[in-house]
Amino acid sequence: MTADASDLATGLSELAADRALLSRTSTAERVAAILRGRIAQGLFRPGVRLSEERIGGALGVSRNTLRESFRLLTHERLLVHRLNRGTFVRVLDVSDIHDIYRVRRLVECAALRGLGEPPYRLDEVRAAVEAGEQAAEKGDWQELGTANIRFHQAIAGLADSLRADDMMRGVLAELRLAFHVMADPRRFYEPYLSRNREILNTLDAGDAAAAERMLGFYLEDSRRQLIEAYPDEPESAGRR
């Protein structure tokens, strides 16, 4: 079994567990939310072709519902449809990475800048940091990556904006597609775990301005590291 086939099989198994989240009145938006979440967890790799029959069977939804969810995720730049070939998980290029980080700085740093007076509500941020530390203790680097995504979603959530939350869910899921290029996920994710804790501790101390500065340097370091690792010509199947 190839690596892509193995990844798809794992993803389908996880989707079967998600079936319980859907009811007979489930909508394409709910299916899209599940698939978006699984992409953000790294279960579907860039360039993988998504089988309507197998995914629809795993979730127990009609082909029409699944196709509509695919269209929603294509609009979010997570999937791409190829005529007579099917739907694929999108492969990002370097310009995508630059743009994603531009949006992240606009949203995440602004969320910290607008916090106002402490104390701040940091339960979600704290839970994400602790989940990352637990994943590192177990040596589960994929789960550490997922916890890191949760951390940044929680940082954006401090803006208390449903629109910002929705946008960041898509942006961070798209970013997870780029992380697959990192040959050594531990080397990529582990250094940022201590920086997540440092940002949390700084927010706990009530210094949002310092936390924002730290986050700005953090995002720039992450962007540079990812760009340096990114191939000049990613595989074409899941390109725009």
Rank of each mutant, 00 (worst) to 15 (best):
R150A: 08
A20Y: 10
A154K: 00
A154Y: 01
A40K: 01
L8V: 09
A159Y: 11
R90G: 05
R197P: 15
E228H: 08
P118K: 06
G139W: 03
D184N: 05
L15W: 08
A159Q: 11
R150G: 03
G37I: 00
R187K: 06
S51H: 05
Q41W: 15
R105L: 14
D160W: 09
R30T: 09
L162E: 04
D140F: 14
E117G: 10
M214W: 05
A9M: 10
A136W: 07
E174C: 05
F88V: 01
E76T: 14
D93V: 14
T10Y: 12
E228I: 13
P191R: 06
V129M: 03
H180P: 04
A164C: 03
R67Y: 13
G11M: 01
A33K: 03
L21F: 12
S51I: 06
R113A: 10
I97H: 01
A156K: 01
V107N: 07
S6K: 07
I39D: 00
P119Y: 11
L43K: 05
P231E: 09
T74I: 03
F151V: 02
A58N: 14
K138R: 15
R45P: 04
S6V: 14
L144Y: 05
L21C: 13
A156I: 09
A183C: 13
P234I: 00
T202G: 10
R113D: 15
E133L: 09
S236K: 15
A9S: 15
C109S: 11
L219T: 05
D96C: 04
Q142A: 05
H98R: 10
A159K: 04
V171F: 04
P191I: 07
G216D: 12
R126D: 08
R186D: 03
V94Q: 06
T2Y: 11
E235P: 12
I100M: 08
V48Y: 03
E198C: 07
V107P: 14
L177W: 02
G60F: 05
R240Q: 08
H152I: 02
A128P: 01
S194H: 10
R126Y: 02
A154I: 02
N196P: 08
A173P: 00
A178P: 01
I55M: 11
E198M: 10
E198Y: 05
L78D: 00
V31C: 04
E53R: 15
R82L: 11
S26G: 13
F44N: 01
E68T: 10
G139V: 03
G132K: 00
P234D: 02
E137A: 14
L79V: 02
R240H: 13
R113W: 15
A156H: 02
R195L: 09
A131E: 12
R49C: 14
N201S: 13
A156D: 05
T10C: 12
E76N: 11
R45D: 03
V89T: 07
D99Q: 06
V31L: 04
E76G: 02
L158W: 03
R85W: 12
L122H: 05
L72G: 01
R121E: 14
R30V: 11
I149F: 10
A127M: 08
V80T: 06
I149R: 11
S23G: 13
A32G: 10
H98Y: 08
Y230A: 06
R169I: 04
